[in-house]
Design a binder for these strands. Sequence first.
DNA 1: ACAAATGATACTAATATGATATCATTACAT
DNA 2: ATGTAATGATATCATATTAGTATCATTTGT
Lengths: 147, 147
Amino acid sequence: MKLITRDTDYAVRILCYLSGKKERTVVVEMVRELKIPAAFLRRIAQRLSKAGILTSAKGFNGGFILSAKPRDIRLLDVAEIFQGSFSLNDCLFKRRICPDRKTCFLRRQILDIEKYVLEKFTSLTVGDILAGGSIDGQKKNNQDRRE
Amino acid sequence: MKLITRDTDYAVRILCYLSGKKERTVVVEMVRELKIPAAFLRRIAQRLSKAGILTSAKGFNGGFILSAKPRDIRLLDVAEIFQGSFSLNDCLFKRRICPDRKTCFLRRQILDIEKYVLEKFTSLTVGDILAGGSIDGQKKNNQDRRE
DNA sequence: ACAAATGATACTAATATGATATCATTACAT
DNA sequence: ATGTAATGATATCATATTAGTATCATTTGT
């Protein structure tokens, strides 16, 4: 069972790291801290930037910075960049496999489960992850005391 | 989001089909009804048999038959044959990626979601799928009125 | 002995994932 | 203006997984 891929995981780490920064941060610095292969990290940052989650600047004092507050960045938004849409509308089986859809109970059950996952991914934010992780796991789901 | 693969899906259909049979059924018949590529269906049936979910017989009057009642075949058992263990013990990232596991809040959250999926896959049986699907979706989770 | 079935297994093709490499563009400093 | 430090865009490569095919071996009833 693999709900998130490596890209998504790395992306979350990048976002968590940048949450502690007031200024733009350069790829080489992130690499130093996060131990993610440089070229890979760079591409991930670029994709986050293209998606609007990071804001970038080229040139001399360039780098990346969060476009929004951590609590406003949902895991879903990040995951969809790297793993494609989590939407429930597209059929479970992408190409014409489900012959009698109307009675496909299994499909409905799977969709229910996916709906649950979707809700969780929607409600969980980078802010939550920061809060939960930094206090050594004693606090959960309370993001209001952290900017 | 892909919770089940094609193998698993086909396997469930095979099991549902065989639920309506009292006698052994031969691959060519299943192919006729289920429109699954013959060689593929055969290999899936063989794997189900090897796993003990189907019982097979070689030779002249050979074929496949359910080893247990539909209500006793869990989706989890089927899915694990084709998709590997759904166990929550193996680390989310299979090889040494998570540097500080203790504080990995994201990982814990993902594990919680996976736990939910696991529970659903454990409780959903072929019997449920038969019951839910055959009554055109009006009944759910009531497997007691069907053998 | 033959035919009808599954068992075991090897192979191929397509897609997804993980990662790297390279050239283009931008922006500041001198 | 030029060099350097940065990201943008994109192409490529390697590996793993998924989907599907093919073949030979074995069993069994007639």
